[in-house]
């Protein structure tokens, strides 16, 4: 439907307004991650600062300040090293005065504070956490794609007795809140000796995830049955049909499954929180949360960490946008 120009202008207006609202938190995150401890919390009554500033230093690395009381009000000077009774000594071209910290402001210039990233990387074992996260992601992707496609094949393309009952079971378990099985599963993994290992996070992926089984089944159903029949006449067995005909035709659906699984595991929190205990096993999400809980309101480093764990996802999203949108559309519409 082609809209009238007027409608389109109005739409543009609202879209731009909404985009700004949606994007502002991201900008704020990056901006905050580049601010120093001193500037990240604005003084009472000052507006938020979008562009990070740092203290202005003179050639000798001393801070430049502006007085806001006393005879030198409004003049700029430099802060000398020496302090007396916790008052700061400030030099105005040779003349010095003593001042309390609230009597002057430190001059600010635009500049980035990369220290937060160093702090954040120093406080968590980033490479190790990244490796753990990717390891879990990759294995879960392999497991999910493999198991869900075979199961979906069985539900979509093999007419066996009891199939429908089984499939309804799959749909029903999608409704089941994870809290119901949370505790007994913990007990099961405990008796298997799996608590404190990656196994509780990975092994279930190899036994099918209802949501993706459903997604792939819907996709397999759309492939004409004649193709299987033709292959069968050619002497192809069930596995051959699955591997040579169905799978190659289902790459978009499988890519979607892989992508969603990857994203889910990348950000998954509760399971790693419960099952991983050694800090060398932590995933990025858990490491970020642990970091946050032990350094509450260390906003600079926290924003730096958040930026670092978000960026890979954003990159992946840009590379795979089409698959993504297709996938979401697929799951939503056929529901």
């Amino acid at each position: 439907m082609a809209s009238k120009p007027k409608v389109r202008y109005v739409a543009h207006f609202w879209l731009i307004a909404a985009s700004i609202l949606f994007f502002a938190p991201f900008l704020w995150m990056v901006s905050s991650s580049l601010k120093s401890e001193a500037t990240i919390i604005p003084k009472t009554g000052q507006p938020p600062q979008w562009i990070p500033h740092v203290d202005k230093l003179d050639a000798q690395g001393r801070r430049c300040v502006i007085m806001n009381t006393g005879p030198f009000k409004g003049k700029s000077g430099v802060e000398l090293e020496a302090q007396e009774e916790s008052q700061h000594v400030i030099d105005f071209n040779g003349q010095t005065v003593k001042a309390w910290p609230e009597d002057f402001d430190v001059e600010q210039v635009i500049g980035f504070e990369w220290e937060n990233y160093k702090t954040a990387f120093g406080m968590i074992d980033f490479t190790n956490n990244l490796r753990n996260t990717l390891f879990i992601c990759v294995l879960c992707v392999i497991g999910t794609v493999f198991s869900c496609s075979t199961v979906a094949y069985s539900f979509a393309r093999i007419p066996w007795k009891g199939r429908n009952v089984c499939f309804i079971l799959v749909l029903a378990t999608m409704m089941l809140p994870y809290q119901v099985t949370l505790i007994p599963l913990f007990a099961v993994y405990r008796s298997l000796g799996w608590v404190g290992t990656f196994k509780p996070l990975i092994v279930p992926a190899f036994f099918g995830v209802p949501f993706y089984i459903f997604l792939l089944r819907q996709f397999f159903m759309t492939i004409p049955q004649d193709m299987s029949a033709a292959a069968r006449i050619d002497g192809c067995n069930e596995f051959g049909i699955f591997a040579r005909i169905i799978l190659p035709l289902s790459k978009p659906a499988m890519a979607t499954t892989a992508l969603f699984t990857f994203l889910f595991e990348w950000g998954d929190f509760l399971n790693p929180l419960i099952y991983l205990q050694d800090d060398r096993q932590y995933t990025l999400a858990v490491a970020l949360q642990q970091f946050q809980s032990s350094h509450e309101s260390a906003w600079g480093p926290l924003m730096a960490m958040s930026t670092v764990i978000t960026i890979p996802i954003v990159v992946i999203f840009f590379l795979t946008q089409r698959t993504f949108i297709q996938g979401i559309t697929m799951t939503g519409l056929k529901g």
Partner: peptide, 19 residues
């Protein structure tokens, strides 16, 4: 050494979980 932090449930789940 493993730095575990002060969250009680970390220790509880480890001990209760047999690890």
């Amino acid at each position: 050494t493993v730095i575990i932090g002060s969250r009680v449930e970390k220790l509880l789940t480890a001990i209760a979980g047999g690890a």
